[in-house]
Design a protein around this nucleic acid. Sequence first.
DNA 1: AAAATAGTGTCTGTAAGACAATATAAC
DNA 2: GTTATATTGTCTTACAGACACTATTTT
Lengths: 237, 237
Amino acid sequence: MTGESEFLDAYDASDFPRPSVAVDVALVTVAEEKLAVLLVRRKEHPHRGAWQLPGGFVGIDESLDDAAKRVLLDKTGISGVFTEQLYTFGDVDRDPRTRVISVAYYSLVGAGRLGNLHDDGALVPILVPWSGETGGAVDLRGPDGLIDVAFDHRLIVGTVVKRLRGKLGYAPIGYELLPGEFTLHQLQAIHETISGARLNKDSFRRRMLASGELVSTGRRQQNVGHRPATLYRYEPA
Amino acid sequence: MTGESEFLDAYDASDFPRPSVAVDVALVTVAEEKLAVLLVRRKEHPHRGAWQLPGGFVGIDESLDDAAKRVLLDKTGISGVFTEQLYTFGDVDRDPRTRVISVAYYSLVGAGRLGNLHDDGALVPILVPWSGETGGAVDLRGPDGLIDVAFDHRLIVGTVVKRLRGKLGYAPIGYELLPGEFTLHQLQAIHETISGARLNKDSFRRRMLASGELVSTGRRQQNVGHRPATLYRYEPA
DNA sequence: AAAATAGTGTCTGTAAGACAATATAAC
DNA sequence: GTTATATTGTCTTACAGACACTATTTT
């Protein structure tokens, strides 16, 4: 048996069949107290009529990050938002046509920035059938019950939710889903939506303010029918 | 312009040049209070004589996880250890020969289980030039100063260290690096090695015992020149 | 007995949860 | 004034850090 390095060096690009490499991008936002993801409808077999994450094959002269940005821009016109590699899905049978390895990415964007989607795209609420950071596939709710999702994309979205819950405690995830100025109540709602749990208001407020990364703008809410809350801005330390 | 789904479905496997996909595996252990990783020496250009992580191309009928296990088994004879996907490195120029996307994995194993390595393999101590979870490439120490490492493998190993530090607080990482029975002192030493920081002894002990996942075996250390510590076993709740 | 580390008990400071009281805008 | 939420203050509890003290083995 030869070692890996021999194998690696003896390898000729044309010698062996090789997998295709795609990126799939989960654009996530929070709308009406629910996590939602952008899906597009499939027009061809397999899974014709089902929904999937926007995706595309990786160009031979294109980095993975660039491919993800391109897919996002092509499908939504959005760029410049928080985007991060999630996980690479490589089971042999995940695509029935041919061997496709998918490097999954996720993006976060405030609900306000999602204006005009393409015709075949839809923001779909995510139903998480597990608690905490258990992980696993999620369900996606359409107008008439759960919708049909192609490939392993329910698992990909579930992995996004797991990642978000994990990062919520130590990374500035919530701010990516809010406008530039926001109230502490809005921030808490985002955290509760992501974590799937209610949070203690007093403690949340103290913890956020103690971080030193929230700056009061001096401005306040307008026309809210009750005492208006102070608007804050996020400023990394 | 066509949408992604059209592109995806119109894609014929033979139409476009596609990247190669490899897995690289960082086998990590703790030896003499230092994190160390298994590297192998390159025998061919490029980077001839430099060191790299064990790696191999992904077979067309082989999942990514299986490819990682195969690489690990081929190079070390080890199987059945904690192994997890780390991150996928896909910059265009990371391999000067051709486009290679590397899905990196890492494995954890107790120092005791690393007996007879192949001739061209070496356990190399990791020097982390950043603190906390900053991330970035690490340095690798050979007998005569830092060693020459091929491709972006210093960054891959750095990413492993970052991941380990992140998981240390909530996942049973430490136990993977210890024999089945261990003292609290040994466990603390592992945690300190991974985190790169000293930990409070009292607090560490309380926290570990409070987890309820450490079971006293009733046995104790032998011949240690001082009061022997109780040996514990890790039992997931 | 000396050396060296294991293990226990207690005090203090910090932060979270709970709860009460006050503030401020729209109506 | 009423309503509804914002904001502040206080009390209690849980836990980490610090420190002192006791325990147990080898030499």
